[in-house]
């Protein structure tokens, strides 16, 4: 039995199809760009979908000012290379109040990310936003539609989502409503890595192991990425060979000790590892079990 197309070919074709379908009904689409590996794959797929045209929408980075330095570098480089406009949005209220992950706990994510995203979408009047969520990430994500409808206040109602049959997406909406579209819904973490390898997609170097200054706190290995990191009494940054499985705000993202310096080694480590991808993130754990679902209802991506 031979199949002409591999699973990666099929996933790629499906994602491209989804992105092109959005263009039929969207008035003002935007691609959320978080600079992580999933975003990198999404951006690459968008370039493929519309080639030789540049993707007909801008990139939006909802910034918290607390991302890793290396992320900001790659972000600016990729915007230039893709020929797409890059919109960087920072919630002015969070900025003014100096909201930060050290002093404000869950409020940090809520204000910079959840509120920031809503504000940015409203400010620019974007009616469709591409996001890089995958169904394999987390339980409530497994039931998310590819076209996910949000009320005019960005709420998500699991009971009001439309059935999605075949590859027919219904992107019609009333004024004020918006859609989050997840073109890589059906990709797994392994697919993402393998596609990055196959297509030679640039990613943030933090995904590869290197000696980095770290401290151990609350069971997480945190990287001291800049001098805003307040060291507790007795804490001294230690040089460890670490890498990151997911990237977010550096004070909230746990590193893993690793020697994996190449893509193959990273994939190998992932396949042999015994903890799930999001475990390095603090965000999922607030509010117990149904935390992500709750966040989604409030408008978090």
């Amino acid at each position: 039995m031979t199949d002409t197309l591999t699973h990666l070919d099929r996933l790629e074709a499906e994602s491209i199809h989804i992105m092109r379908e959005v263009m039929a009904d969207a008035a003002k689409p935007v691609m959320l760009y978080s600079v992580g590996k999933d975003s990198a794959v999404m951006l690459h797929l968008a370039r493929k979908a519309f080639y030789p045209s540049p993707p007909p929408f801008p990139l939006l980075h909802v910034d918290t000012t607390w991302k890793f330095k290396a992320m900001y570098e790659l972000r600016d480089r990729m915007a230039t290379e893709s020929g797409m406009d890059l919109i960087v949005y920072q919630n002015p209220e969070a900025k003014e109040r100096g909201i930060n992950p050290f002093d404000h706990g869950p409020l940090h994510t809520d204000m910079w990310k959840t509120e920031g995203l809503k504000q940015a979408l409203d400010l620019h009047g974007f009616d469709v936003a591409f996001g890089g969520a995958r169904r394999d990430e987390e339980k409530s994500r497994a039931k998310e539609r590819i076209f996910s409808f949000r009320t005019s206040t960005h709420g998500w109602d699991p009971k009001k989502q439309r059935p999605e049959l075949w590859n027919l997406y219904n992107a019609r909406k009333a004024k004020g409503e918006s859609i989050r579209v997840f073109p890589i819904s059906n990709w797994t973490e392994l697919d993402i890595w393998q596609y990055i390898a196959r297509e030679n997609i640039p990613i943030v170097p933090l995904y590869f192991a290197a000696p980095r200054p770290t401290v151990e706190r609350d069971g997480l290995l945190l990287m001291v990425d800049d001098d805003r990191f307040p060291l507790l009494p007795g804490e001294t940054p230690v040089e460890r060979s670490v890498r990151f499985r997911t990237l977010g705000c550096y004070p909230l993202t746990g590193a893993v000790e690793s020697e994996a310096k190449t893509l193959s080694e990273v994939i190998q480590e992932m396949l042999l590892t015994t903890t799930s991808e999001r475990q390095g993130r603090i965000i999922d754990k607030d509010g117990g079990d149904a935390s992500m679902e709750k966040k989604k209802q409030e408008g978090y991506f």
């Binding site: 339980k139 079990d289 679902e293």
Partner: peptide, 9 residues
């Protein structure tokens, strides 16, 4: 493992 949404759990 697979029963995702809070309500149905």
């Amino acid at each position: 493992l697979v029963d995702g949404l809070a309500a149905e759990r």
